[in-house]
């Protein structure tokens, strides 16, 4: 088995069809209202049960969660595998970090189980929607410290936002399983973020350059995971930014503000791309 595993080789059965971020962003249709600015008010795009397409949108998001959990499972498994136990230098990671990654693999395996069951409950078939492999791609750097930043802080941070949104959806809809399950998964994800933050601090204790590089990388991944503003504090974003749970997971206010700012920029950039594409296509 190779030490590092490329995203193109992720193994799936025939039901799954994969895509990547570039392909996704080349789709220039948009659900957002281009006339709106971030400050103006209008109908919310937030994923709540009172949206006319609530169940469809929730199903599509649940499928995204399921494939995201599969990739998180694969990512954690790979980190447990790819690096030898050592003192953290020269491509090694501490033994205890490997153990934590194995534990995370188990947690993510449960999350896949949960999201498969929830998908079934909501009426989604496995592989019904395409799978964006951006999570694994962005998260599986060859530098273990970048993985901690990319997976445990950016990806798991996104998971906190998504689960908070789905938990609220379940609560408002009075769905007896959705809120219950999202709450459990949320507890795990907060743990994973904390774990990542602790290890990032410990492994880079005497190497401020490495730490800075990791945090830079996290910002790049965070912006990517904004999915063109699909996550953000604006009401135009279907998924909110879960400030309270992020705080519980150890993100500082400044860090959350930075992510909120990037989400806002990503949304405006996306709108500009869509606007230009429409002008070009003249529709």
């Amino acid at each position: 088995m190779r030490q590092f595993f490329p995203v193109e080789d992720l193994a799936r059965d025939d039901r799954f069809v994969q895509t990547n971020m570039a392909e996704r962003m080349s789709d220039t249709r948009s659900a957002v209202d281009l006339q709106r600015t971030a400050k103006s008010r209008g109908a919310s795009n937030r994923l709540t049960p009172d949206r006319h397409d609530a169940s469809d949108a929730a199903r599509s998001l649940m499928h995204g969660i399921m494939v995201g959990e599969i990739q998180a499972l694969e990512g954690a498994g790979r980190t447990a595998h790819d690096f030898d136990a050592g003192d953290g230098s020269e491509g090694t990671i501490p033994f205890e970090l490997k153990l934590d990654m194995a534990r995370q693999a188990w947690d993510e395996a449960r999350h896949v189980e949960i999201s498969v069951k929830l998908s079934d409950w909501m009426g989604t078939e496995i592989g019904q929607f395409q799978e964006n492999t951006v999570l694994f791609e962005a998260a599986c750097s060859n530098d273990p410290v970048l993985r901690l930043a990319g997976v445990n802080r950016a990806l798991e941070g996104l998971a906190i936002d998504v689960f908070t949104q789905m938990k609220e959806f379940g609560q408002l809809a009075d769905d007896p399983f959705l809120e219950f399950c999202e709450d459990w998964m949320l507890a795990d994800e907060v743990t994973h973020v904390k774990m990542g933050s602790d290890w990032l601090r410990r492994v880079t204790e005497n190497d401020p350059d490495r730490r800075a590089k990791a945090l830079d990388f996290q910002r790049v991944v965070d912006k990517l995971f904004s999915f063109g503003g699909a996550r953000g504090e604006s009401e135009e974003s279907p998924i909110g930014l879960a400030r309270r749970f992020r705080e519980l997971a150890g993100f500082t206010d400044d860090e959350v503000d930075t992510i909120a700012g990037m989400d806002h920029d990503a949304l405006e950039e996306r709108k500009e791309v869509v606007r230009l594409a429409r002008e070009t296509a003249d529709v």
């Binding site: 080789d9 193994a11 693999a105 896949v112």
Partner: peptide, 20 residues
Amino acid sequence: GGWVATVPELDIKMRLGTHC
């Protein structure tokens, strides 16, 4: 842990992650 990403069978993928 390493094999999780290499097996296409979803049930086995999840089992390997658990056993890991």
